Amino acid sequence: MAARVGSSIQLKGLYAGLAGNLFGVLPASAIFVGIYEPTKQKLLTVLPENFSAVAHLTAGVLGGAASSLIRIPTEVVKQRMQTGQFASAPDAVRLIVAKEGFKGLYAGCSSFLLRDLPFDALQFCLYEQLRIGYKIAARRELSDPENAVIGAFAGAITGAITTPLDVLKTRLMVQGSGKQYNGLIGCAQTIIREEGPAALLKGIGPRVLWIGIGGSIFFGVLEKSKVFLSERHSIVDSESESSKQE
């Protein structure tokens, strides 16, 4: 949040929880891709060609489930810091565990999984299917900007669809030991009763914007990295074959 002090606006609150978030997001993303790609490739070889969406959805769910072991505590710490409960990530982890036990780092676990597993599955499936369709229409490999645009579109659409789940996840994660909400269903009922159904769409504009931008960067980098690794692998194989012939 941006705080106003006197006549100036303090913007550092906009980046609250950034360090802790980056610390968790990087390994979580590596785990996700490490599970998603081989699972997708394996499923694509055993499923009929017209079932490619099933492969993408399944791989997205499995990748999301594995990476959630890191993503959930990271999200809890980030949300608590953004609401001003803690000044640093180490303090957040230490005090959450001291007050709520280790399970406090997994507060809102059910709502997080309910949001992120469908999000991961839908975003990656939508991205992959759009790429397949575009490549067929264009009859060529896609350029980096084209991959980025498709990634942005997939992220924005998925972000909009999952906004109510994100609202529930956030409310449950930041409530701490106060327990304002009693579970996922209770949280939804309380929000609708006290704030109206429209409250489940709070923040949809910024969410669509930043996930669209993030999707553009993530998928653009992902495809570029896959091409680089593939070319590198081909060079190594070629050099290995040459050494054998010698």
Rank of each mutant, 00 (worst) to 15 (best):
I161M: 12
T163Q: 14
I161A: 12
C187I: 07
V167P: 04
I157F: 14
Q180L: 12
L165Q: 04
K169S: 09
F153W: 08
D166W: 07
N182V: 06
G155E: 09
N182Y: 07
G186H: 08
G155A: 09
K169T: 03
A152G: 14
G176Q: 06
T163G: 04
A188Q: 07
V149W: 04
F153M: 12
G178Y: 05
G176D: 07
G186Q: 09
T162N: 08
I185V: 14
K169A: 11
Q189L: 14
Y181E: 07
G151S: 08
T163E: 13
G178A: 13
I157W: 10
A152D: 01
M173A: 03
K169D: 06
V167M: 10
G151Q: 06
G159T: 09
T158D: 09
F153Q: 01
A156W: 10
T162E: 05
C187G: 05
V167T: 11
Q189D: 13
T162A: 11
I185A: 13
Q175T: 03
K169H: 03
G178Q: 12
A160G: 14
P164F: 02
Q189F: 10
T170M: 02
L184S: 02
Q189K: 15
L168F: 00
A160W: 11
Q175V: 03
L172P: 01
G151N: 05
G159C: 13
I150L: 15
I157V: 15
G155P: 06
T162S: 12
G178H: 13
G183H: 01
D166F: 12
A154G: 11
A154R: 05
P164N: 08
T162G: 06
T162D: 04
I157A: 15
G176Y: 00
Q180K: 12
L165G: 07
L184Q: 02
F153H: 01
I161Q: 05
Y181G: 09
V149N: 05
D166T: 15
G183C: 02
L184W: 00
T163A: 08
V167H: 05
T158K: 08
T158P: 06
Q180R: 12
A156D: 09
V174A: 03
D166Q: 15
Y181K: 11
V174G: 02
L184A: 02
G159N: 11
L184N: 02
N182P: 01
G183S: 02
G155Q: 08
M173I: 06
V167L: 08
A152Q: 05
G183P: 02
V174R: 11
T162Y: 06
N182W: 05
Q189C: 09
M173C: 05
V174F: 00
G151T: 13
V167A: 05
D166R: 15
R171C: 07
T162Q: 06
C187H: 04
V149Q: 07
N182H: 15
G183D: 00
T163F: 01
T162K: 04
A160T: 14
Q175N: 07
A148C: 13
K179S: 14
Y181C: 09
G155M: 10
V149S: 10
I157M: 15
L168E: 01
K179P: 00
G159M: 11
T162M: 12
V149F: 12
